[in-house]
Write a protein that binds this DNA or RNA. Structure first.
Lengths: 192, 192, 192, 192
DNA sequence: CTCTAAGCGAGACGGTACGTCTTGTCTTGAG
DNA sequence: CTCAAGACAAGACGTACCGTCTCGCTTAGAG
């Protein structure tokens, strides 16, 4: 039994407190205002404990993302048989979350974090769980014959989310109408 | 007896030097590393001269955007008669710029700036001139009968740009193929 | 034909406003807090008008001193026939002024100004009018035979004022008693 | 059991470097030109480390004073048996220091610092060690019967130093003669 | 009566320093 | 060996003034 390792092992309590504090402060103040010192104080933790386990602010956010700590709800697209209606409804739900309790600034902060930190960028799709929901539902639409077999579901999901992101970044004042128009057009049935 | 204001007028030389320094440093180092002190030093200007005329770092970027100082080239979509081919080619061109001389990090910085500062967000579309190029070309496509009359051109442009932004944020390793697939699908001819 | 000097002459109103503002702000805030910009604003005057006529903050204070704008009262030592009693009373009066309406900080500011600016130093004695009052009275004391003919009146006045200054600088909590002791001792009658 | 305080302790090296830099720059440039940033740079120290331990520029000077870092020599008044001669000689020595290597401006800076900052004022006498030397010697003079038992030694010392300060502030061009006259007069033997 | 050079108020300018904040590293002593 | 606490060097923040420099009046002799 070599490989002796004295002393305490990584503190689960500290990890939890740090991630909880990060998520809370990220939601409350956004990415730019988020400081390591602030998180350490809020979590009742030494700064070094953070630096020991995460290499940057972005890595913290990334872990919060994969832990699902930044999105309280996890919308799953329902299946009513009508792919366009389902996706419209799903996007409506996302917009509803955005509009109530400043989800727009949460999204903007998330985008900022992703833009500035590769770790966050890597986990963005994953964490949002968002494109997956959409592309899954569209895949079912293909199976149902409602969408053409060659529909590039991943890219379509990116386009839908991307359009919404652009609108949020440019501070559009309405999301619902334009998004509905977009979805109806790009997913409209085609006849050969 | 109108509002007379004696005294020196705003220095055009200082304004020019500041914007030039901002654009140069933004491109070289990105948004997060951009500091007011750095700009002031590079421009040979007092910090107060910056704070006198711009209320934030973001306002500076926004003005650079509207002045077209952040995008060296201004791609206009050509009209070969084939709207899909033209838009594919245009997007290819944009991707080419992104890939050479770290345009990706420029775009990421721009997105970060837009996310964190409303001024930048407001000028983003305008400054990129980007959606306009696309929607213009698509409008011609409608007139030519290549796209349906009810095609939501603004939203389609947002979707195309948005998809690209998402790919850049998530550090995709290839843009060309997915974007081509997307464009071909959403702009594909439909028959009634 | 030579040495023509066209144009308006120095504005008496501006000079008055500047000196008044200087005196007021010096008394209110002390020397260290006194700024040229503050004086200009208070006087309703351009900064350049101050710099045109005075070469430094100290020169302004010096002129206020010689104009007697910094000491509201101008104590003249009375002559009751008893030189020691008269000087004690005079010093008491000065202490009274010091103690009421923060004369201590006024004196400290004055000393700071004199220490940092030769102009102020040069006018300090003159402006306080202070040593003169004392040395005059002592000269009368010599004529009366109450003080020895060889008493160095200027130096004695400096010693008395200087002792008081030292006490004010070191934030002594009582001036009256020590000063009385000092005066009584150094001016005490001597017998051959 | 008691008030534990973990964490690093105050760096003695930093403290030493800061005080040394302060003393050096104070002597070289005077009080008004002394800046926290300059000290930090000279000491190779962060600004915050200064602000952490001293609340003002004055507090720094005060500590230099009590550490005896501002006066290279520490004159002790000798005892030849003749109190007047000894004090004259002591004052001569002080004047000698003043006159050579711009001790006058050092003294003026010190007075400015004392005038503007209570901390410095409080430590002025102590730090100069100066009045104490004088009053000690005078106390011996009393014991020897050369001075009257009721001579107010503290106040006399203040008067002597104060007269010198006044002369330095008013930029007198000679100290030696006047100071000798003053001392001889106020300490002259008296007969009942 | 016109010309013209100065004085004036206002305030922009390139700078320096302020005192605060945060970064990421290092140090201490408890557990 | 980890942890909390926090000192440290570094350096940017946004503000306050410095002393100089335009601006576009408004004067007041000289021609």
């Amino acid at each position: 039994m070599n490989e002796h390792r004295a002393g305490p092992v990584r503190s689960a309590a500290a990890r939890e407190a740090i991630l909880a504090a990060t998520a809370k402060m990220f939601q409350a103040q956004g990415y730019e205002q988020l400081t390591i010192e602030g998180i350490a104080k809020e979590a009742g933790v030494g700064k070094q404990t953070i630096y020991r386990w995460w290499k940057s602010r972005g890595a913290l956010i990334a872990e919060c993302l994969t832990d699902g700590r930044l999105f309280p709800v996890d919308l799953v697209a329902k299946n009513s048989g009508d792919v366009i209606a389902d996706i419209e409804e799903w996007v409506s739900g996302v917009i509803g979350i955005l509009v109530s309790h400043n989800g727009e600034s949460l999204l903007r902060s998330l985008v900022a974090a992703a833009a500035e930190d590769a770790d966050v960028g890597d986990h963005l799709t994953l964490g949002m769980g968002v494109e997956d929901r959409l592309s899954e539902r569209m895949r079912i639409g293909i199976a149902d014959g409602q969408l053409p077999p060659d529909a590039p579901v991943t890219e379509l999901a990116q386009a839908i989310i991307g359009a919404l992101v652009i609108q949020v970044l440019t501070r559009a004042n309405e999301y619902e109408g334009p998004m509905r128009q977009l979805i109806r057009f790009i997913l409209a049935p085609r006849f050969a």
